[in-house]
Structures are given as structure tokens and as C-alpha cells.
């Protein structure tokens, strides 16, 4: 069965890149533009994994992860953050609100797929 991934990013470029890479690996992709939109989309689909950007308007990645973790059925859902930041601070903050792992931009499609496969079954 193919994996379903929800990608949350305010950049169309990034969303398109993710979709292309994930689709190429046979995964289904739902997209959202920011945290608020992400929560809306979550109420209509049940992804196996979420990939979210951190810096977004309206609701950023941290707020989004926190909100997702409050939804019982998604408490253990793998959530990967997408970040260009290399500082440990943001990763630690993301982890403290419940992020599972991270993907560093710019990503190699193979690496992206292997990470998604590693955290989502």
C-alpha cells in the first residue's frame, strides 16, 4: 500500500519539489500552505507522515506540530520538519513540541524518500 504524506509549506516551489519526489516514489501527497491550512487538510485526510516547514505565515511549524499532537489519532504520527537551519536550537524546539525528525533543505530525493520510509510504515 502506498504511503500518504501531507506536506505543509508556504513555498509553492518547495511543495512542488516535495510532491515530485514523493510521487516518484509512489507516495500520495496532500498539500497545505501553512499550519492553519494544514490542520484543515488533516481533517479530510489521514496521512502516514507529515512533512512541515517551520517558518510560515499564520501558524508556523512549531504551532502546527503542537496542534497535531493534540489530536488523539495523530499523537504518534511521524512528523518531519523541513528546514534549512542547521542550528540545533530549532531542531530541539521542534522536537520538544513533538517533531519526529527533520529533512534538510535542499534535499536529495533519495534521502527524502529514505527518511520518510524510515519513520512511516
Amino acid at each position: 500500500m502506498s504511503l500518504t504524506v501531507l506536506t505543509v509549506d508556504d513555498s509553492r516551489t518547495m511543495r512542488d519539489m516535495l510532491r515530485m519526489a514523493l510521487n516518484a516514489a509512489g507516495m500520495l501527497v496532500h498539500q497545505a500552505e501553512d499550519g492553519v491550512h494544514g490542520l484543515e487538510v488533516l481533517s479530510t485526510c489521514a496521512p502516514d507522515c507529515i512533512i512541515t516547514d517551520l517558518n510560515m505565515p499564520r501558524m508556523d511549524g512549531f504551532g502546527f506540530i503542537e496542534a497535531v499532537r493534540k489530536i488523539p489519532q495523530y499523537q504518534l504520527l511521524p512528523i518531519l520538519i523541513l528546514t534549512t537551519e542547521s542550528d540545533a536550537e530549532r531542531k530541539a524546539k521542534a522536537r520538544s513540541v513533538g517533531a519526529t525528525g527533520w529533512i534538510t533543505k535542499p534535499f536529495e530525493p533519495e534521502k527524502l524518500i529514505s527518511v520518510v520510509r524510515r519513520v512511516a510504515s
Binding site: Q75, L76, L77, P78, I79, R95, G98, A99, T100, G101, R117, R118, V119, A120, S121
Partner: peptide, 14 residues
Amino acid sequence: AVQAGNEPILILRS
């Protein structure tokens, strides 16, 4: 870690 969605069985599987 488990509560953040890191499923041990998946790590073992990888």
C-alpha cells in the same frame, strides 16, 4: 522519542 512518532520497530526494520 516514541511519543514524538519515532516507532522503535521501524528503526529496527531500517
